[in-house]
Design a binder for these strands. Sequence first.
RNA 1: GCCCCCAUCGUCUAGUGGCCGAGGACACCGCCCUUUCAAGGCGGAGGCACGGGUUCGAACCCCGUUGGGGGUGCCA
Length: 468
Amino acid sequence: MSAVRVRMAPSPTGYFHVGSARTALFNWLFARQQGGQFVLRIEDTDLARNRADATAGIERAMTWLGLDWDEGPYFQSERAQLYEAAIGRLLSKGLLYACDCTSQQVAERNQAAGRPPGYDGFCRERGLEPSPGRALRFRTPHQGRTSWADVVRGEVSYDNASIEDFAVRKSNGQALFILANVVDDADMGITHVIRGEDHVPNTPKHILLWDALGLGPHPVFAHLPLLVNAARKKLSKRRDKVALEDYRDEGYLPEAMFNYLALLGWSPGGDREILSREQLVSEFRLDQVKSSPAFFDEQKLAALNAEYLRALSPSDFTARASEWLASRWSPIAPFVQERARTLSEVYSMVDFLFLPEVRTDPAEWAKVRRQHPAFVALLEAASAGYEQCEWEPASIRQATQEAGAAVGVSALAKAQAPVRLAVTGRTVGPPLFESLHLLGRSRALARLAAARERALREDAASAASPPA
RNA sequence: GCCCCCAUCGUCUAGUGGCCGAGGACACCGCCCUUUCAAGGCGGAGGCACGGGUUCGAACCCCGUUGGGGGUGCCA
């Protein structure tokens, strides 16, 4: 009886997707309940899209959720020799062949022949020598079927003839995910591969490679249902709010998120929904996970979060809320410290970070408008610059300076005043560029637009009824 | 196009052949409580995609249809 070993294998894309969080959670629950190990492995075979700071983000997010790992993180980028050894073995068995087709050539041949997309096996019998500049492809068998008993979906089966000769090594010599994944799962003794449904089509390839490498019995596969948006499409970074840290920043409690995620695709049965971490560990059943996609419903998450909030003692609630509040403004705390004479003044210097819309003193508004004839033009120029620039204090400063110059305001100080009023509602406060940075681009732009409209409305009104 | 998968209220789900005249939760509506708003209590509307089988009996099993999704990269 071998102990359960599962793994979470994210690619370092710069943020931790809620779908990844759910996958990580189910792996973690299964490992903890079975008394097994949970391994963290970073799938960074594609150096081109690797982000140096991404791993830290993944670790931070998992730690926030309370998912601790027993081993790792391992990095595929440091394990290339292992993949090379596996490639050597496959090569010696004649299971790999070199290919110098470009994807464009493949596409053109397919189109010309009226074939569906996918590699056409052009080099399969050409006998090309493996060499730099040539990719290596797996010689997929043309007969037979590849199937497995998926823990959540039951028997899944593919006709081998429908599986293309997929690449395992790029022409630049780098091993591909599909190969690295199999080699690592074997090397790390992974017993259960629990991952998203989007990996189902990869699974027959994994099994084929696994067997070709003679790695013994393959792991048990469990493909979790996808998390979808309101349109029932896979959650994606472009369309949807998918970064776990965004939910954290908006004040969701990790224990509520933990509980909610556990309910996506699984249920304890009966009427219960609020379950502690311990209850989830003991009651979770991998083989009861549903196979249909689940909508990530923030409204329901919020309701659950509210229940967790109410369940806190008043002192715990105060502590958690204070901690969150502090985390929101602490990046500019040193600047506030220099300017505040009393603690009570701190509030008026940071309130713009918390208010949904700025509150502007009418007298200050009037004063700034009087002193800055180019008010509207400046806001417009600043908005245009802010949309383009990198969202860092130095770049924001430069964009502001350029916006000022564009409307004939050469002094940076003069260019700042209208922006500050629009964005913070005040004429004094912590340094503007740090404040903007912390506020975030979208909120900053929205406030600039609101102030501009207000000014235009006033101008229109005064033009309609000129003062006597 | 081809391959694979999925299908219970708007949403997350309970349901594994009789306990289902289908239960809970979120959202929605109404009432109560209440100085307000929440919270809480009570009630309401709302679903087994469709068609064939199998069976004494089907939300549950089988087949088909329809609808939806995933994949189809020298990405992961």
